[in-house]
Structure formats: C-alpha cells, structure tokens
Simulated scan of single mutants.
Amino acid sequence: MISDTELDALRLSGEKVRVVRDELESNDVTGIVVAWDEAQVLIRRQNRRVVKLDRRYHYQLFSEPRQSVLGE
C-alpha cells in the first residue's frame, strides 16, 4: 500500500502517475494524484474525469518503465 507521504509528494509535484491494476497494460490508469483517504486515491485523468482507486494497487511515475504486478 502506498503511504501518505508518497501520495503527498506525488500530489505536490503534479507528476503524472501510472496505476498498475493487473498484468494487462491496457487496464492501467494514468493521471495526477488529487486526494486520498485510508482506502482510496483520487486520480484526475487527462480527460479531466476523476477516478477513485484502491490504495493497494501499484503506483509508479508514468515516466518510469512499467513494472509488472507479479514481479513484486
């Protein structure tokens, strides 16, 4: 699970993140971190829609190569 300090750093930097939900790259969600609580994170996508995602997913910078979920 991603920590509050990591989420805060991502929100303040405004960097685009990739949320890896499973092995299929087409199911990834990309956007910027807007807000979060104990269980969920709000991500604003490029089309300005907001998506609510579970904090247990794998969050990484979009500029970095995609990491597999099973590789952890």
Rank of each mutant, 00 (worst) to 15 (best):
Met1Asn: 04
Ile2Phe: 03
Ile2Lys: 08
Ile2Arg: 07
Ser3Ala: 02
Ser3Trp: 10
Thr5Lys: 10
Thr5Asp: 09
Glu6Arg: 13
Leu7Asp: 03
Asp8Asn: 14
Ala9Leu: 14
Arg11Ile: 00
Leu12Val: 11
Leu12His: 06
Leu12Ala: 09
Leu12Arg: 13
Leu12Lys: 14
Glu15Asn: 11
Lys16Trp: 12
Arg18Glu: 00
Val19Arg: 00
Val20Ile: 10
Val20Thr: 05
Arg21Met: 12
Glu23Ile: 12
Glu23Val: 12
Glu23Ala: 15
Ser26Val: 15
Ser26Lys: 15
Ser26Gln: 14
Ser26Trp: 13
Asn27Ser: 07
Asp28Asn: 15
Val29Met: 05
Thr30Phe: 12
Thr30Asn: 14
Gly31Arg: 14
Gly31His: 11
Gly31Ala: 04
Gly31Val: 10
Ile32Arg: 15
Ile32Thr: 11
Val33Trp: 12
Val34Met: 13
Ala35Met: 08
Ala35Pro: 09
Trp36Tyr: 14
Asp37Asn: 15
Asp37Arg: 03
Glu38Cys: 05
Ala39Tyr: 13
Gln40Gly: 05
Gln40Tyr: 13
Gln40Cys: 11
Val41Cys: 01
Leu42Trp: 12
Leu42Gly: 04
Leu42Pro: 02
Leu42Ser: 11
Arg44Thr: 00
Arg44Val: 03
Arg45Phe: 07
Gln46Tyr: 06
Arg48Trp: 07
Arg48Gln: 10
Arg49His: 08
Arg49Lys: 11
Val50Gln: 15
Val51His: 02
Lys52Phe: 10
Leu53Thr: 04
Leu53Arg: 06
Asp54Ala: 12
Asp54Ile: 06
Arg55Phe: 03
Arg55Gly: 00
Arg56Val: 02
Arg56Glu: 02
Tyr57Gln: 01
Tyr57Thr: 01
Tyr57Pro: 01
His58Trp: 14
His58Gln: 14
Tyr59Leu: 01
Tyr59Asn: 01
Gln60Cys: 04
Gln60Lys: 07
Leu61Val: 08
Leu61His: 04
Leu61Ala: 03
Phe62Pro: 01
Phe62Met: 08
Ser63Gln: 11
Ser63Asp: 12
Glu64Pro: 07
Glu64Thr: 13
Pro65Arg: 10
Pro65Thr: 03
Pro65His: 06
Arg66Tyr: 07
Arg66Val: 02
Gln67Phe: 05
Val69Tyr: 08
Leu70Asp: 13
Leu70Asn: 15
Gly71Glu: 15
Gly71Asn: 15
Glu72Tyr: 10
